[in-house]
Design a protein around this nucleic acid. Sequence first.
DNA 1: GCGATAGTTCAAGTCTATCGAACTATTGAA
DNA 2: TTCAATAGTTCGATAGACTTGAACTATCGC
Lengths: 101, 101
Amino acid sequence: MADVTLEGILYALSDPVRLEIVRRLTAEGCPLNCQSAAPQNMAKSSVSHHYQILREAGLIRSERRGVEVVNSPRCDELGKRFPGLMKAILTSAETVAKRGK
Amino acid sequence: MADVTLEGILYALSDPVRLEIVRRLTAEGCPLNCQSAAPQNMAKSSVSHHYQILREAGLIRSERRGVEVVNSPRCDELGKRFPGLMKAILTSAETVAKRGK
DNA sequence: GCGATAGTTCAAGTCTATCGAACTATTGAA
DNA sequence: TTCAATAGTTCGATAGACTTGAACTATCGC
């Protein structure tokens, strides 16, 4: 968590796929496995790649639970480091999502 | 301004160079020309490229003034479309900048 | 018009996203 | 324990973005 940077966060969220993943993870109350928060038609390898970037950026935490890996957002810790940042981005993302693309 | 998207904004700001440019533009009260807000050692073509992306993302407005092009942030309009977004990002950027690195 | 300054455009080289295929890890059942 | 199924990861390879130098355009002052 020490080497979490603003550029890293913005870079990770600059990809529509990754932004949508984080949006879904935060919208749900409980952790989701990798594929349930990712686009349906995307290759598994691409999904895995995106999750790796999100992990390295410090945006999510992943944990193996049985046969699947469940992911949770790290909004609390991020909120301490960059107050209001995730909230603003996710609020905007929600607005866009509700606006219907 | 109609086709300004959240992904476009985040993408534009995901590059450290572009984030720094926008940060300087907003920190200054008056518009700056292209090179005064960009890194010193960067090629002109690269600088121009970044400004183009910032313009297309709707983050800045450029206007030719004599021999130079001056740039201003479009925080007001962006604030209406995505409330709190730019403020949060720029606050974080300022924090990082003041933190020394 | 000439030169100088400030940006833009263009083509080429280098680094990232995407995909399919092969691989690993875990579970549950025979 | 062995087998099959499920969920992710890793690996090459291919198509797109960042950087740069060179050439080009636009504006100003002389």
